[in-house]
Every structure is written in structure tokens, then in C-alpha cells.
């Protein structure tokens, strides 16, 4: 399926490396997009393209957090609760998000729209609380902004991506989550 749908891209990736095996990480991203998640078939196809054993492909893919081995929602929300963010209330804000979604950490909504999970530092700690939707950043989250974001995703999908790191001074009414 990967080869049928993205032969050109696959060949371009392979051309970056002197050895096929090195194409594994970018190839897993491609496979994930084409198959939705890393199904057994996806792993087998990547292994065949790279002339590797499927178990090897599987074990490497398991090492990283951004490869999924189970069906996920259309939107994967990853919310940073690592220490620097947690200092300013990220754990509390994450709970608010879970409540808005009616989900527990790691779950996918019944309508197949959202998967939600907490994660380690996203390299945006000054704009905490911060989350990603399909690897696109949303910063300085409040309960109201999260509600609005979910609504946007439901009705019109992801907004256009752009630069982040929109640093904001704290004010007396900056939510702190404590």
C-alpha cells in the first residue's frame, strides 16, 4: 500500500542514505500516515522495502513515542505534563482537558475523533500549558481555549500551522492551576 500510494516519496527517502536500514524512521512515519497506524501489514511492508526482519522493524518502532501500534483518533492530542510545565499547573490543565473530552489518559473517543495522552517536554516550556494536535503546537492553554480548540477541530479541522513560542508575560489573572 505504501509503495502503491507513495512510491516517489519512498524512493526519495531511500536516496538520502547509503544503507536502506537508515530510512527506517522516516519510512515508519510514511507508513503510519498511509495505514493510519502501524498495523502488522504496515510493519511487514516497511520491512520488505528495507530488507529487514519485521521483528526488527517492530522493536525499533516500539522504542519511540510517536509511532502508534493501535488505532488512534483522527486527532492525536499530546499534552505536556513534564516538570517545567507542571510547575505552572499543567497537571491540573490536563485534567481539565480530559474532563472536556470525557476521556481518561491514553483513550480514544468513541466517535474516533480524539486520542489523548500526556507526554514529556515538548520544547515549549515557557508557553505552558502546551499541547500538540497531530504534531502542531497550541500554547498558553486555558480551559476556555481548550474548549474552543476542540470545537474548532470538530467543526473545521486543524487551523493553519505557524511559528510558535508566543511568550506571554504573566498577569494577576494568568491561570495557575493551583
Amino acid at each position: 500500500m505504501l509503495l502503491e500510494q507513495r512510491r516517489e516519496k519512498v524512493e526519495e527517502i531511500l536516496s538520502h542514505y547509503p544503507q536502506k536500514r537508515a530510512a527506517l524512521m522516516p519510512m515508519l512515519y510514511e507508513a503510519q500516515e498511509v495505514y493510519g497506524y502501524l498495523t502488522e501489514e504496515a510493519i511487514r511492508e516497511v520491512a520488505a522495502i528495507l530488507e529487514l526482519d519485521p521483528t526488527e522493524v517492530y522493536s525499533v518502532s516500539e522504542f519511540y513515542s510517536l509511532y502508534y501500534h493501535k488505532p488512534t483518533g483522527k486527532y492525536i492530542i499530546r499534552f505536556c505534563t513534564d516538570m517545567p510545565c507542571a510547575l505552572v499547573g499543567a497537571e491540573h490543565a490536563y485534567q481539565q482537558l480530559l474532563n472536556l473530552l470525557g476521556l481518561k489518559n491514553g483513550e480514544t473517543s468513541a466517535d474516533g475523533l480524539f486520542t489523548v495522552e500526556h507526554c514529556v517536554c515538548l520544547a515549549a516550556c515557557a508557553t505552558a500549558p502546551v499541547l500538540q494536535v497531530n504534531r502542531q503546537f497550541f500554547e498558553n492553554m486555558t480551559e476556555a481555549k481548550m474548549r474552543e480548540l476542540l470545537e474548532t477541530l470538530r467543526t473545521s479541522g486543524l487551523p493553519e500551522d505557524g511559528p510558535v513560542m508566543k511568550f506571554q508575560p504573566r498577569t494577576a489573572d494568568t491561570p495557575t492551576g493551583f
Binding site: M83, P84, V120, A123, C125, M165
Partner: peptide, 16 residues
Amino acid sequence: AEGEPGTFGNHEIIEN
């Protein structure tokens, strides 16, 4: 790779 919690300098450079 910029994964060290508390670090986000490279992130700003590469985008801008």
C-alpha cells in the same frame, strides 16, 4: 533533538 526539559532555544531558531 532538543529534548532536555526546560530547553526551547533551538525551537525558536529553526522556525524563525
